[in-house]
């Protein structure tokens, strides 16, 4: 099975040392680095104040 060959590799960009607040929305994208290695990339979007919501689910 294709997925048996997958090794997941996680790293995150942008967020380091930034922390979280109610003004930030985080999305995570999967990037393929090689056949067996994937990288998770996070993207932080600053939301306008009235629409701010918690990142914590």
């Amino acid at each position: 099975m294709k997925f048996q060959k997958i090794t997941l590799l996680i790293i995150f960009l942008l967020l380091s040392f930034v922390g979280f607040s109610q003004q930030k929305e985080v999305t995570i994208k999967v990037n393929k680095v090689s056949d067996n290695v994937y990288m998770l990339v996070d993207k932080v979007e600053i939301l306008p104040f009235p629409l701010a919501k918690m990142v914590c689910l």
Binding site: F3, Q4, I6, L8, L9, I10, I11, F12, L15, G19, F20, V26, T27, I28, K29, V30, Y38, L40, D42, V55, C56, L57
Partner: peptide, 26 residues
């Protein structure tokens, strides 16, 4: 899996991983 970010992101991380495999993280 290598490194796991801040705790509040775990659900989103797990959801992203599920897009490439249904297998658990060993």
């Amino acid at each position: 899996m290598i490194d796991d970010q801040f705790a509040p992101l775990t659900p989103k991380i797990l959801a992203a991983i599920k897009t490439v495999t249904e297998k658990p993280i060993k």
